[in-house]
Design a protein around this nucleic acid. Structure first.
Length: 410
RNA sequence: GGGGGCGUAGAUCAAUUGGUUAGAUCAUCGACCUGUCACGUCGAAGGUUGCCGGUUCGAGCCCGGUCGUCCCCG
């Protein structure tokens, strides 16, 4: 993996760049739609290509449990398996340490619900499951959410799985802290993340060394290609530290000094209401100056539309977020006029498209009335059409930001 | 004409021997969703129990009448 910065803004820390991978180029700033289980829910790989995305993000935890990395490796790797010849990034499974652990016991999401929300989803109650994640120094013990079987994930195994999956960009196995954790607990998670980062790099080094050896053996041509691919995988370290300035700076210095190909900024950034945006931006203002300029930065799990511009101005190159796709499945279209819940009866006889300014196939071919009907009738085509639109909208949005950087407007 | 069953939220149904402010599900309305356990979560509104009368301390439940509806027999 190679990263080249092609332009730096004069107004902000924003920059344009190109990430070169074994599966093509990625023009940054870029947004990865999330394909947790090797699919952007409701869409095909061709759809994603049509929309214009150059990369997607899949998940180590989910694919390890089903169908298993060995199967995917046998099927020729994730790209072939899902018929996607663009860039693939894989999350390490670290987030599931949080979302299936503290996320459930604390009944919170990565960013806590705002004060208007009277209650939060009760996944634990619904499934009768609690405390099925145990974090130890060697790794994380947990029960599969699919069949309850005992499982174990560590920095080493996470890297190995991601190598088998064959992603172009992989992430270090980290421990995100819960937004409800205090300074002490957040620090503990950060320090473990740092120790695990070292182990991830060591694990990757083993593979790279053995790949180099194999390259020098003329008899093993197919292995050579595979080894070359692994050697080209970019490994990103992850900065933690929650909402605490001291920790974030400490983490950025520590992780930033390591031999990673890029960096993720993860964990929680404080609350999502009131001064939420300033929380996120504050964290970035602490972290970004301490990360090497010449390497890409990925803001993990963000975001909302209004998070993107300030983050890019702070120097973020990559994003991934479930938001546009999940919102689409939950009836909400993200448009130039704001979010609209298309399932509301007010749209049942509305002949206009979702977004008058949008050129996506959904907006070109279907009325709000039809989409409203599909959602009320529980037809999955509605989810598909809305997912297509939301991703199209995000793609256009990020493209327009790139143009603004190009013309020095941002 | 005679006999019987059933009438409870917009819909389909609950409600111990008559016993507090008649429940559930779906639909409706509102809010939420940030490295996806997610076609999900939370909340609100909505009923003079067909109508009239009676018994009782107390009736959705018992009694009489009436209206509607379905079934059976003439």
């Amino acid at each position: 993996m190679k990263f080249e910065i092609t332009k730096k803004s004069k107004k902000s820390e924003a920059r344009l760049g190109i990430i070169e991978t074994a599966h093509g180029e990625l023009h940054t700033p870029a947004f990865f739609p999330v394909a947790t289980k090797a699919t952007i829910k409701t869409l095909t790989s061709q759809d994603i290509k049509e929309i214009g995305f150059e990369g997607i993000l899949a998940n180590t935890y989910h694919l390890h449990l089903q169908p298993g990395e060995k199967t995917i490796k046998k099927m020729g790797g994730l790209h072939k398996f899902m018929n996607w010849n663009g860039v693939v990034a894989t999350d390490s499974g670290g987030f599931q340490v949080f979302s299936l652990g503290a996320g459930i016991t604390h009944k919170t999401s990565k960013i806590p619900a705002n004060s208007k929300t009277k209650s939060v989803p009760k996944l634990a109650d619904r499934h009768g499951l609690t405390h099925f994640v145990k974090i130890a120094e060697e790794g994380v013990y947990f029960k599969s959410h699919l069949d309850g079987s005992p499982q174990f994930l560590s920095p080493e195994s996470s890297i190995k799985i991601q190598q088998d999956l064959g992603a172009d960009i992989i992430f270090a196995f980290d421990q995100p802290s819960s937004p409800l954790d205090n300074l002490e607990k957040t620090k503990e998670a950060m320090e473990r993340t740092h120790r695990w980062a070292t182990r991830c790099l060591q694990q990757r080094e083993l593979k790279v060394q053995s790949a180099k050896l194999k390259v020098s053996e003329p008899a093993s041509a197919p292995r050579q290609a595979q080894g070359y691919g692994v050697a080209k995988q970019g490994l990103f370290g992850i900065v933690q530290g929650g909402k605490y300035e001291k920790l974030r700076k400490q983490s950025a210095k520590f992780i930033g000094a390591m031999n990673f190909n890029g960096f993720g900024i993860g964990g929680s950034f404080g609350s999502s209401y009131g001064d939420s945006k300033t929380n996120l931006i504050k964290v970035l203002s602490w972290v970004m100056p301490l990360l090497p300029q010449e390497k890409p930065r990925h803001l993990l799990g963000i975001g909302h539309l209004d998070d993107l511009i300030p983050a890019i101005k702070a120097g973020v190159d990559l994003f991934d977020c479930v938001y546009p796709t999940r919102m689409a499945r939950h009836n909400v279209a993200i448009t130039s006029l704001g979010n609209i819940d298309i399932s509301k009866t007010i749209f049942s006889q509305d002949k206009k498209p979702l977004d008058p300014k949008c050129n996506c196939p959904t907006c070109q071919n279907y009325t709000k009335a039809y989409l409203c009907h599909l959602f009320k009738a529980g037809e999955t085509t509605g989810q598909r059409l809305l997912t297509y639109h939301n991703l199209w909208f995000f793609k256009q949005f990020v493209d327009s930001i790139r143009q603004k950087i190009e013309s020095n407007k941002i």
